[in-house]
Write a protein that binds this DNA or RNA. Structure first.
Length: 315
DNA sequence: TTCCAGGGTAACG
DNA sequence: CGTTACCATGGA
């Protein structure tokens, strides 16, 4: 992945590396979002520390590194390196820093979003309540697409159950201090499965086909994050994604938001968004798509951030 | 028990 | 073309 870590964004302390995010940033808000489900299997939260196994690529090869992310002032981030036999060189520390920088979306300038939110009846209170929240990413394209597919038309609790079954059946893990830390299954593993391997885990037959199909495309390098990003604009990326079997407008925009970092991405069909709007405006029924288009028009190029903040109202 | 859940596809008129 | 049945199971 391209290294977007700015020179003044970090300071190295040999045993740990500290990030200096641009304002506004709140670690507490990030932690609250990440802790939204106790069934999340891609990291552990212990008090106010996040422990996660991440892939780090250097010298052309990928290693898995267990990191702990915490904060001293709530406006900074501290990355420590845990239980690894790997020599944590500066190169590895910087690669981990770049990963976390992208994970927490620290390259995004939030000032214009906060400014427009002040004039918006739906967003005004929300940006105040969740001040400093950033759109937490899913860097791995296959993980982002899989999580989108899994979440189609089922409640989030069950979606987390299905994800953990998939990860624990086909992912790689490292054990540390009695806890298992997971890397999401690789496309090359899922591509070789038959649908019955997944329906056994209570995936629907259809979702099993979608996942295996996407895995095959990625394994054959006919679908890559780099090529999607190279399309350059949100609509072109969405068009490419929607052509894939199992990827409709909602899933495409979800992936644009969480993985490809397209600020205009907007999953307008999202039930969570509908319920948040219904709740905030005290509507009797869920808003229509036409009404949502009207409400979201002022959000301009910040529709993905508006959506992410509105999700926080209910989840 | 019923109804809805962070939708999408394929088969209809 | 727009609309509808179906998927499949967990939670509330």
């Amino acid at each position: 992945m391209k290294n977007t870590l700015p020179r003044d964004g970090w300071s190295d302390h040999l045993t740990y590396i500290k990030l200096h995010p641009p304002e506004p940033f709140s670690f507490t808000q990030a932690l609250a979002y990440l802790a939204r489900s106790p069934k999340e299997c891609m990291y552990h939260i212990e008090g106010t520390r996040i422990v996660k196994l991440i892939p780090v690529t250097f010298h052309g090869s990928t290693e898995h590194v267990l990191i702990e992310v915490s904060s001293e002032t709530d406006a900074d981030l501290i990355i420590r390196f845990m239980g690894t036999a790997l020599d944590v060189t500066l190169e590895v520390r910087l690669a981990a820093a770049a990963y976390v920088w992208d994970w927490f979306d620290l390259s995004m300038d939030l000032a214009p979003f906060y400014e427009l939110a002040q004039q918006d009846p739906l967003l005004k209170n929300v940006v105040s309540d969740f001040n400093g929240l950033r759109l937490m990413g899913i860097a791995d394209l296959f993980e982002a697409m899989s999580w989108g597919i899994i979440g189609q038309q089922i409640n989030l609790a069950f979606a987390y159950t299905l994800k953990s079954r998939l990860v624990e059946a086909f992912g790689e893990s490292v054990e540390w201090n009695g806890c298992k830390y997971w890397i999401f299954p690789k496309p090359e593993v899922i591509a070789e499965l038959s649908t019955s391997d997944l329906t056994q885990l209570q995936f629907t037959g259809r979702k099993a086909e979608y996942l295996i199909g996407i895995a095959k495309l990625m394994y054959e390098h006919r679908l890559t994050k780099e090529e999607l990003l190279a399309l350059g604009n949100g609509p072109a990326m969405e068009k490419a994604l929607v052509q894939l079997r199992g990827i409709g407008p909602w899933t495409a925009n979800y992936v644009l938001m969480r993985c490809l970092r397209v600020p205009t991405a907007f999953p307008i069909e999202d039930v969570g968004l509908h319920n948040a709007v219904k709740h905030l405006l005290k509507l009797d029924a869920k808003p229509t798509l036409a009404y949502l288009r009207e409400l979201s028009a002022p959000w301009g190029d910040y529709k993905s951030y508006a959506t992410f903040y509105l999700w926080r109202v209910l989840y």
